[in-house]
């Protein structure tokens, strides 16, 4: 194990890999559908054929958590990538062009940063109507400003670096200068931020789903499962608790894995 990769982070990476594989292939291996009842309602965990038990409809909770995890991961990945790309575009423009454009773009960015992200996402999702696509759009709307700010600062710092000055003196200008000499220095920072962000996006997706702004039932969404099961917390605790734990665990793993990635990049001098 490299010295810059701590034991906890390695464990997180290994566990995350297991979770990713399970989420990708698990639903294919499960004998049950995630939306068709497969057993008696309210079966507790470790019941025959139902590792995590069943919910109030008799749906297999393990199957639904696996599918919900896959949906959460996919959603978080798409949202983070779109937000990062949009943020990079805006941040690069602002940082590299500067002047009035920088001022305008950064004031707009500040405006978004000043608003409470989750509340704004809820408002946008409510406006767009319930559904996974609405949630993704809503979260993306509030997620890009962080990247814009970050990239703008990095671009301005990198633009003054010696290798960029050298390239400029040798006649490289404009888009070519940005793409070949500025952005490569910015990308690792964005990658680390994005990896750390995925956990946050997963929690936000679950939060929107929890308050009823995600896909409608019986879609296997972790937030929706926790929300719908909350009324059974005293008598069938596993119905809301296991999906809730899945959200927390996913978020934690991504954060520790992201920390590991940062350590790796630092170790390589990034």
């Amino acid at each position: 194990m490299p010295s810059w990769l701590r034991r906890g982070e390695t464990l997180a990476v290994v566990m995350l890999s297991v979770v990713l594989v399970a989420a990708l292939i698990g639903p294919l291996l499960s004998p049950y559908s995630s939306i068709i009842p497969s057993g008696a309602p309210h079966l507790p965990p470790l019941s025959a054929g139902h590792l995590f038990g069943t919910d109030e409809l008799g749906l297999d909770i393990a199957t639904r958590i696996l599918e919900g995890t896959r949906t959460s991961l996919l959603t978080a990945l798409v949202v983070t990538v779109i937000a990062a790309v949009a943020g990079m575009l805006i941040g690069t423009l602002a940082g590299f062009v500067g002047g009035v454009l920088d001022t305008v773009l950064m004031r707009v960015t500040d405006l978004f940063l000043a608003l409470p992200a989750t509340i704004v996402a809820m408002a946008v999702a409510a406006g767009l109507g319930t559904g996974l696509t609405s949630s993704m759009i809503a979260i993306t709307v509030v997620w890009w400003p962080l990247y814009a700010r970050l990239v703008r600062g990095e671009v301005r710092r990198t633009a003054r670096a010696l290798h960029v000055e050298a390239a400029r003196m040798s006649g490289t200008r404009g888009t070519r200068l940005v793409l070949r000499h500025v952005l490569p220095s910015v990308l690792p920072t964005v990658a680390v931020t994005a990896s750390l962000d995925i956990g946050g996006v997963i929690v936000t997706v679950a939060a929107l789903s929890f308050v009823g702004l995600g896909a409608p039932a019986p879609a296997p969404e972790l937030g929706l499962m926790a929300s719908a099961g909350l009324q059974y917390v005293v008598n069938s605790w596993w119905i809301p608790v296991l999906p809730g734990l899945a959200v927390g665990l996913l978020s934690l793993l991504f954060n520790y894995a992201g920390d590991g990635l940062r350590a790796v990049l630092r170790g390589k001098g990034a």
Binding site: D197, G199, V203, G244, G248, L249, S251, L252, N255, Y256
Partner: peptide
């Protein structure tokens, strides 16, 4: 974010 995740759990 890690705190938020721990809080969730």
């Amino acid at each position: 974010t890690a705190s938020a995740a721990l809080l969730t759990i």
